[in-house]
Design a binder for these strands. Sequence first.
DNA 1: TTCCAGGAATCAA
DNA 2: TTGATTCATGGA
Length: 299
Amino acid sequence: MPVTDYDLAATLCSGQAFRWQPVNGGWESVVHGRWVRLEQNPGISGPIQATTLVRQTEWSWLETYLQTEIQLGSILATFPTDVPLTEAVMACRGLRLLQQDPWECLSGFILSSTKQIVQIRQCVEHLCRRAGRPVTAPAGTPWAFAFPSAVDVAALDESALRECRMGFRAPYLRNAACAVAEGRLDLESLRTLSTEEARVRLMALHGVGRKIADCVLLFAYGRQDAFPADVWILKVLNHLYFPNRKPSPQRLQRFVDTHFGPNAGYAQQYLFHHARVHLGAALAHPPSRPKRSPIRTSR
DNA sequence: TTCCAGGAATCAA
DNA sequence: TTGATTCATGGA
């Protein structure tokens, strides 16, 4: 796949998908039930090469997943020109959003609650090994299981899910699986709803609040106006946009709703990844005197 | 050993 | 409506 401005490595390990494994300079996972290996030639405009073991007659499933047709420049052009976001974009040039399967994405983020990303990954793999269908993969591949369908997960009892190390999240996932398996929640039909309507449907699930709903809307449904506000983003907003101040949650939400434009979710991903990769220590132990100037809000 | 993690539900005030 | 507490687990 020819691409421009596409940083495959950053995209696959930026906390939006949990099953990609770095292997011998490439990345391996199972996407829509197919084992696949991805490699990118050096640079963020090097073509991406995909390998499967089962011959593919067409690749639209992967192009859609990777969003290779998106013109990144047209998205970045809608960003406000403030210093923190500009720095994040420069540091993470080529970072993209994926478009994942809604059920897999919803499950992953139900499991994400107060877990570190590495633990979410472990938990997801336990679940796949326990309930996922085996897929054709190179010999010895330990993650050669599809992500289990809602029906597969609903067939497990809570104790089996707890054995996947998901703790108090087990009943949340099981309830969601039952809702989808029994047709009480039609994840495909959410595509036809407005972002706000779809958010309400997702948040009706026990264990799914605003943040998890926004992750699913952004990473599975391509709703780029959804802005997941997690602990990292709140640290970023406080540290970089409101130094020496303590804005109320309402003020922060209003800022998020109005500042970042129609692709706020994309902006969020840049701020999130930049903070985790480059600003981790600074955010964990913020200096008493902020080094950055207050935000300019012109666009 | 202690802290805390891509939260959300619950309950008291 | 707001703030504190609880939930399970394991990496750092």
